[in-house]
Design a binder for these strands. Structure first.
Lengths: 214, 214
DNA sequence: GGCGATATCAGGGTTTTCCCTTAGGAATGT
DNA sequence: ACATTCCTAAGGGAAAACCCTGATATCGCC
């Protein structure tokens, strides 16, 4: 019987080793490789051709979404499941757009992760139950399961404002910089945060780093 | 033979389960309890009286440093090893002050963690090799060592507050995180900005990046 | 022509930050 | 014993951010 070949891409070595134990104790799965950064993940995926890549979103050199995109380009038969501690739907949208087939929170139970691997191996899409919640109330939730990129994209102006917010500029400074009124800055900021499901300035900073805006 | 009794305090369930496997496969250790937040960690420590608590610093309800302090107060015989993904020295100082006997990065190898547990169980102190570096070469010490003329060095608390400011946290969030009043946060922030001649939040973000606090 | 998305701005009320000063207790140093 | 630093905290007033609603103009598009 062929076991599912899994590649672990995760920079926290202790977590990675633990994951390896958890997966190897499953009857029909085995870990065939490990990577501690995005570029290594991509190269290993190309070389080992695993069935599934378990990909941490936050990694050095190349983040999880970018690595996913590269892998999906070069090895379309390799499926990617994103693993993350972030609950904000912005990350979910990002990795799904990059071509991931699954999204599991680190806070989730093991069974969810195993479920996700099984489902994705069969060609399905798996979204963590907690994250699914966030999308149930979205008018676009149908698309998620059809694998279509969803979530409203930010406009250019919104990206501009949000990255300045992440850089620590005050609304007034941003307004001067862009030659618009403070009120307009407030509007762009609020709208974009709402689109991305970001609830605080700290989450904006985190997201901006993830996107490489900084 | 008595095994070392370990309590796992970690909110990421997948990591926690993996850690459990890693520790239980050691001959002289066993996991006797688990907690997914700081308050539960404290209560479990009181109840189970483990030899060692493996404590994630970032946890809901009560952060790792506070939980460590509480545990050390009520059960001085229980040793705490902090587990974290943060390399920033501010955290190291904080948890050591709270009474932790060890500090291990999630990026570290398992052997380091096992080493740390053994060492601490024998009454020693273990600081992760990568973090030991950071302790000697902290921004604070650098200034002292190189005798940089420009201005007074920041205190630990000031570094801590300022790096949280740079991460986008509001004064209120920082106050909660550190369990001090908003007024105190304002004071630390103002004092440290004055010391460094930083005039805006954006400059703080910039400086923090320069210092590698992010 | 109307529909949707984008970009702009405002009013008004609440909360938070910012900036100034002051100050006490603990630890450390001379 | 005295000085200094650190951490803590507060008061008070001005400024800014936050949160809500509503409004106008443009542009592409079916």
């Amino acid at each position: 019987m062929d076991k599912l070949k899994i590649l672990l891409a995760e920079d926290h070595r202790i977590l990675r080793e633990g994951l390896k134990r958890l997966i190897d104790e499953q009857l029909n799965m085995e870990v065939v490789g490990e990577a501690d950064n995005g570029i290594a993940a991509w190269q290993q995926a190309k070389e080992l051709e695993p069935d599934i890549v378990l990909m941490d979103i936050t990694m050095p050199r190349l983040n999880g979404a970018e690595a996913t995109e590269k892998i999906r380009e070069l090895c379309p038969q390799v499926k990617v499941i994103a693993l993350t501690g972030h609950r904000a739907s912005a990350y979910l949208n990002e990795v799904l757009k990059a071509g991931a087939s699954g999204y599991v929170l680190k806070q989730a139970a093991i069974d969810e992760l195993i479920d996700a691997i099984q489902t994705v191996a069969k060609g399905g899409t798996y979204i963590d139950s907690a994250s699914r919640e966030a999308l149930v109330h979205s008018p676009l939730d149908d698309r998620v399961f059809k694998g279509e990129p969803q979530g409203k994209p930010l406009s250019q102006r919104e990206v501009q404002v949000l990255s300045l917010v992440a850089s620590g500029y005050t609304n007034k400074e941003i307004a001067n910089e862009l030659s618009i009124s403070v009120k307009t800055v407030e509007t762009h900021k609020a709208n974009s945060m709402q689109k991305l499901d970001l609830k605080s300035r700290a989450e904006v900073v985190d997201y901006a780093r993830f996107r490489g805006w900084t």
